[in-house]
Design a protein around this nucleic acid. Structure first.
Lengths: 352, 352
DNA sequence: CCCTGGCACTCGTTGAATGTGAGTGCCAGA
DNA sequence: TCTGGCACTCACATTCAACGAGTGCCAGGG
């Protein structure tokens, strides 16, 4: 922020950096290509449009900006946005009133499903884009109680009560018939050893005790462990990405060609692509941003995706994020996604 | 089909009827206003364009057709479509190969949720429009087993196994604490008296026996009945309208203005309006058709909705249908919706 | 009386010509 | 190194004319 020529960090003159930043800010605000004159007025630098044109030519050579056509202004390229978010952007933290509002909508007295849906709604409402939340991995959920119900023959219904209120069922096909008493006995055994632990801990515990247990019980316990692993938070398997506010995307001129919308909405119903994208973010440190083609999914070529993982008890259990046009107010969206992830994690956590 | 002037049934000359029918068919096929010459060629009547123009003028006066502008052809109005479907349309039954294909995708070995989703998918795939299915009222589902699980204090988890494989949970807040033994006893009692019946029968049965039962049990049984009433098929309450293929609607020129699409898709996420519309159809005899504004919901002003109730064991338990542009191939869509409703009902039925 | 051909008229659509304005690139001078 | 000036480029809007599909109406013929 001091030298007036090139900075070592970026091979870009301070002036160029300032101009790029001003250009992105202008374009994000107004949505129209910005020309040298506008930039001369708004960038704060005391330069003539002509000088600015020179710098803009450089920026264009570097692939950071481009003009839609000869006599229009310039528009940031994905590369330009990338540089902007990486080193030019000043994330303004949300003001505390906003944070409070968010917090009110994510309170520990809600169950997992309600929390996830609320988070998704909030993301979309606050950013005016599409929100999405990967439902939390059930690992962290505290196992309150486990019970087996004999259905018929070898079929047993396993009932897991998590977090005291949330119930999961799974029908298990067993290797042989078990009597009502046997099932009861096994449930008791499991409850004794597992109640209060989360699924992960429960699994470890089971593995530890496995060897000490009579042979004919192992299989059932293995089944129970498997059940725990497969059990997915709240909803019935696979359908574990919650969207909100997709229709907001119809308001953005850059996406409003019907074909683009079509493929986007197909991706929303299909979910697969977005799931893989989010799952790749699950190990990221914090907020992660995919600009344009960076996501690697063609449907999202004209979009940016901002994601953040959220964690419970120090362990990352899910990811959330928003989808919008590349032209989005990153300096606002980033803190919103960040805070929402924290608040969701906190709410999930302090609920146990 | 005989008199050459006006028929008593409709105040419309046979010629006018034939022309209206040809006009609708042409317009539905090509999507463009149809003029007198085209009609002269395709309607089968051996008339000159000029004569046809005279008839078209009459039809326009009656509000059955209208011209988008002076020098375009004519287009059916909603009223015109209405007359068409009411008395001009010849529903061609589906050929048996198609029926077989549908049948293969709706087999009794699927659970309720899978069946409903499959039906919705089929509707949208076959018609190339949006399909929707109201999930069946649980009344018809056969209660295989009921069990109570003590959670904490007065909270009890009720577990209903329906149709041998489908599980529903509901947490009940009771008036006092019940011991494990008491709960077991009550479950046994209920199972003895209710197993195998469907929820409606179970409810009646309960009401009958109520007076004969000890006082302190009544409340729990009432709770159980209430549970049964509230219990909703498969999914967790309220979310009981399954869509498929909404994106197909983006392909129709008459809907592809972004604002129309926006409000349509908002209606899809909101669901409320469509639910009320469908719920109004639940008492209809068979296929019901809403053309344009007939639905009474502004979002659907440019759409037509074709619905049909489906039933299990003679009782109507749900409704399904499709949404598409008013300009749709009614003579094909109607039998598709009809058959799908029958097949879904049959699959649900023969599963018990 | 109904049907038909003819004709004038309407009106959207297309395409070319034109002007306008925003913005650029480059150059010469301070 | 910055700046004003100037020619140039395009997208966009406007105008205008030609076109064509289709209508409404009228007068003549079966």
């Amino acid at each position: 922020m001091k030298t007036s020529s090139t900075t070592p960090s970026s091979t870009l003159s301070e002036r160029a950096r300032l101009l790029l930043r001003a250009l992105v800010e202008n374009y994000v605000r107004d949505g129209q290509p910005v020309g040298s004159r506008t930039l001369a007025r708004t960038a704060g630098l005391d330069l003539s449009p002509a000088s600015i044109r020179n710098v803009m030519a450089d920026l264009e050579d570097l692939g950071l900006i481009s003009s839609p056509h000869a006599s229009a202004g310039r528009v940031p390229t994905p590369l330009g946005y990338r540089l902007f978010v990486d080193s030019l952007l000043e994330v303004r933290p949300l003001d505390s009133a906003e944070v409070r509002t968010l917090k009110q909508r994510l309170t520990p007295d809600m169950d997992t499903k309600a929390l996830v849906e609320s988070a998704s709604d909030l993301l979309s409402a606050v950013t005016q884009m599409a929100g999405m939340v990967r439902v939390p991995r059930p690992d962290h959920a505290a196992l309150s109680q486990i019970e087996f119900l004999r259905l018929s023959g070898r079929q047993v219904l396993a009932i897991l009560v998590m977090n005291k209120r949330e119930v999961q069922n799974r029908i298990l096909e067993l290797d042989r018939e078990y009597s009502h008493a046997e099932l009861q006995q096994m449930a008791n055994y499991l409850n004794q050893h597992l109640a209060g632990r989360n699924l992960r801990q429960a699994r470890e515990q089971i593995l530890k005790e496995m060897k000490a247990v009579r042979e004919h019980m192992n299989t059932l316990m293995l089944a129970a462990i498997e059940l725990g692993e497969r059990a997915c938070c709240d909803d019935e398997g696979g359908d574990d990405l919650i969207f909100a506010g997709q229709t907001h995307l119809m308001d953005y001129a850059e996406l409003s060609s019907v074909e683009k919308l079509r493929s986007l909405f197909e991706a929303f119903t299909e979910k697969r692509q977005l799931l893989t994208l989010l799952d790749n973010c699950i190990n990221a440190e914090g907020v992660q941003i995919f600009i344009g083609q960076e996501s690697g999914h063609q449907v999202l070529d004209d979009c940016s995706v901002v994601t953040a993982p959220y964690s419970v008890g120090g362990r990352i259990v899910g990811v959330l994020g928003v989808i919008g046009p590349t032209r989005m107010a990153y300096e606002r969206v980033i803190p919103v996604v960040d805070i929402t992830a924290r608040l969701l994690g906190a709410a999930l956590n302090s609920r146990n």
